[in-house]
């Protein structure tokens, strides 16, 4: 059986030197951010993408959802090549793969209530009547551990952890098969992060969700991932089952990353 998400030979280049003050002489030179990436995410699987800033992990996550159009290579979702789809078709497929962002403060519209935020994907992707959408949204809020009574609140009235739960509820609204979560806990308070990691794990278990987790926090990855891909300078330098990668890193870069994780002394 083929994987849910299949990425093959993915390249992404961005033009360089088009800044405000740069002179435009000759053809724009290109910067290669992803240089031939292969990656699979199976149904219900959690694959973590780790790497330092500039490694290309966020670009890869965005290309996987066709939020960015790859320069070359193939992204297949459930066997279907995404770049072959027209805009309307792609939009229809989008309900099956959704994104959770790093900073819930920035990714929620401050002028829209929580209930409407969560119900909005349903307005886009379904023809449910308004009343139904509201009922569905209330159910989604409860599913992510929030009281349905919060539906009338605005994002600024919530805590960071609550806002991230809203972001997750919105992503779940269309009953996706795959969530792509870009650093879902790194903007949260330390004492709230475990709640969100637990929530993502329980959603995977109860909904059979696949998760592509982009993270620089290797302890969170160790706790959550089935498989880990290490990205360095636009290439995957190592990909292994999590247990193996953390016990016996094979690539020196992976070993360096693991060695740099601050050691918690006696508790470790």
């Amino acid at each position: 059986m083929s994987a849910l998400l299949e990425i093959r030979g993915l390249r992404k280049e961005f033009p360089l030197g088009r800044g405000l003050f740069s002179r435009r002489v000759g053809p724009a030179s290109m910067r290669t951010v992803l240089d031939g990436v292969d990656l699979d995410v199976g149904r219900g699987e959690c694959v973590a993408l780790v790497g330092e800033s500039g490694s290309g992990k966020t670009t890869l996550a965005r290309c996987a959802l066709h939020l960015l159009v790859p320069t070359a290579g193939s992204v297949r979702f459930a066997g279907e090549e995404l770049s072959a789809l027209g805009a309307a078709e792609l939009r229809r497929r989008r309900r099956r793969f959704q994104m959770v962002f790093q900073d819930p403060q920035a990714s929620l519209d401050p002028r829209v209530t929580v209930g409407r935020t969560v119900a909005e994907p349903l307005a886009v992707h379904t023809d449910l009547p308004r009343r139904e959408r509201e009922r569905e949204a209330a159910g989604l809020l409860e599913r992510v551990g929030l009281s349905a009574a919060l539906a009338g609140r605005y994002p600024h009235e919530l805590s960071g952890g609550q806002r991230q739960r809203v972001g997750i509820a919105r992503a779940l609204a269309t009953r996706p098969d795959l969530l792509v979560a870009d650093e879902p806990t790194s903007a949260l308070d330390v004492s709230v992060r475990a709640q969100i990691l637990n929530l993502l794990a329980s959603l995977r278990e109860s909904l059979g969700l696949a998760l592509l987790l982009v993270a620089h926090d290797l302890t969170a990855v160790a706790h959550s991932a089935d498989r880990v891909a290490v990205l360095h300078a636009g290439r995957i330098v190592e990909e292994s089952p999590a247990a193996e990668l953390f016990a016996r890193p094979r690539h020196p870069y992976t070993a360096a990353l693991l060695a740099a994780v601050p050691n918690r002394g006696g508790v470790r």
Partner: peptide, 20 residues
């Protein structure tokens, strides 16, 4: 806090973290 050692734990779904 999650631990690096968690990866070697058994089973597909690791026990939930004792969240506050």
């Amino acid at each position: 806090l999650p631990r690096l050692e968690a990866a070697s734990g058994p089973g597909r779904f690791r026990p939930p973290l004792p969240a506050i």
